[in-house]
């Protein structure tokens, strides 16, 4: 469903991605690991359409469309979802209004009727259970004053509501204690199915104990330098990233 070819991108004149190649098929979970500053979050941002990044080379095809030509909202409506590493606090916008606006704009795009208030609330309640999210958060301003765990749960809750085809989880494990991590991972696992793809961007192997990947890729200096299965993640956990750097230096 997603084909990335030789993707290169820069920000403020600095080249971050130097040629990423990746193919994600429906039903697959890909983990992207790598040391700090390797370009993991940049890759996630470029796929979601963050405008500060300038794509200088390469192609990204998503379900037969040129993803790079699409506005962020068009990508979302076609099924791309980015769970933010740092979800944005928006004072004055209630979570419930935000969610209703988003869902209904997506539904209209998909040729569905907007949900009425009753069906919407029913759906919300159902999906909130999935990430054990407290209902009191709904009427509060979006992410404002939420704890780190609440923010991340809110991301997965939004993912559940919007039913994306491709989910990109950007460091979703950062700042989570083990209980919150399990809840979030459990939510993601329940949403996994044969027709959806997931990209898990993470620095640590820990999250991959709960969200078992089909493939693990190591991103270093803006490109994927090593790919393998979940065992690669364990190896990275045991040995750190230095051996990869050494291997590359030797090559």
């Amino acid at each position: 469903m997603l084909t990335i070819k030789n993707l290169q991108a820069k920000i403020d004149g600095k080249q971050i991605l130097t040629g990423v190649n990746l193919e994600v098929k429906a039903g697959e979970v890909h983990a992207i690991m790598g040391p700090n500053g390797s370009g993991k979050s940049t890759l996630a941002s470029v796929l979601a359409g963050r405008e500060e990044y300038e794509v200088t080379e390469g192609q990204v095809e998503f379900l037969g469309k040129n993803l790079l030509e699409m506005a962020p909202e068009e990508r979302a409506r076609d099924g791309v979802f980015l769970a933010f590493q740092y979800p944005v606090e928006i004072p004055g916008v209630s979570t419930i209004n935000f969610m209703k606006t988003a869902l209904n704009q997506i539904r209209v795009h998909r040729g569905q009727q907007p949900l009425d208030a009753v069906s919407f609330l029913k759906l919300m309640k159902e999906k909130m259970k999935l990430v054990e999210m407290d209902q009191s958060l709904l009427n509060r301003s979006l992410n404002e004053g939420f704890s780190g765990g609440e923010k991340k749960r809110n991301e997965i809750f939004q993912m559940a509501m919007l039913e994306p085809k491709l989910s990109i989880l950007d460091e979703t494990d950062s700042g989570l204690d083990i209980d919150a991590l399990k809840i979030v991972a459990n939510g993601v696992n329940k949403l996994r199915n044969k027709s959806n793809g997931v990209i898990v961007v993470t620095h640590y192997q820990r999250l991959l104990d709960y969200i078992i990947p089909d493939f693990v890729h190591v991103l270093y200096r803006g490109r994927i330098v090593k790919s393998g299965t979940k065992e690669l993640a364990l190896e990275l956990e045991a040995k750190g990233y230095d051996w990869i750097k050494d291997e590359l230096a030797l090559a």
């Binding site: 944005v88 928006i90 988003a102």
Partner: peptide, 17 residues
């Protein structure tokens, strides 16, 4: 950007903010 990644149009996102 956050609002738009959830499928909300630019105009709506602007009005919301």
């Amino acid at each position: 950007f956050y609002l738009r990644t959830r499928g909300i149009s630019k105009d709506t996102a602007r009005a919301m903010v």
